[in-house]
Computed example of a mutant assay.
Amino acid sequence: MIKHIALWRLNLANGQSKEAAAAIINAAMQAQLGKIPGLLESEAGLNFKSSEKAFDVAIYTVFEDRAALDAYHHHPVHHETRAKVDALVAASCFVDYEC
């Protein structure tokens, strides 16, 4: 099993609130479930703490194996998700690990 976790700082240049942006991101993440083989869990959450060091949103996805994670990045549904959320992300970091 592979867990993929990403932390995002939001780009709110278009005047959206953090809550509205996070809702768009979470809906897009949830919409991937059942449409991408090997994707077992997919969610996003808004950080309720504020700090210079804090990121705004965390995404959490779980995959059957490394091959499923690799396929996810090329899947058309994931590209649809990216089309919805990339403009909302100013900076990111991520980690993938096996458990």
Rank of each mutant, 00 (worst) to 15 (best):
H79Q: 15
F48A: 09
V62A: 08
A44H: 02
A6G: 05
V77W: 01
H73Y: 14
V95H: 01
E43Y: 08
I24F: 09
C93S: 12
M1T: 14
L12T: 06
H78R: 09
A20D: 10
S50G: 11
D86N: 11
E80S: 14
N47L: 05
A71K: 02
A27H: 01
N14D: 15
K49V: 11
H75E: 06
P37H: 13
E43S: 12
A28L: 12
M29K: 05
A23E: 02
I24C: 03
V62P: 02
V57E: 08
A44T: 03
V57A: 09
M29L: 06
F55C: 04
H4K: 09
I5C: 03
A67T: 15
H75L: 15
K3T: 11
K35L: 12
L39T: 04
I25M: 08
K3Q: 11
H4D: 06
C93R: 08
V85L: 02
N26C: 09
Q30P: 01
Y72T: 13
H74Y: 02
N14V: 08
A22L: 03
A27S: 14
M29E: 12
A87R: 14
S92W: 04
E98S: 12
A6N: 03
Q16P: 00
C93Q: 10
A44D: 02
N47I: 08
R9K: 15
L12Q: 06
D70A: 15
I59V: 13
G38W: 04
V77M: 07
L46K: 10
H4Y: 15
V89H: 01
K49N: 10
M1R: 10
A44E: 05
V62L: 03
A27P: 02
H4V: 06
T81P: 00
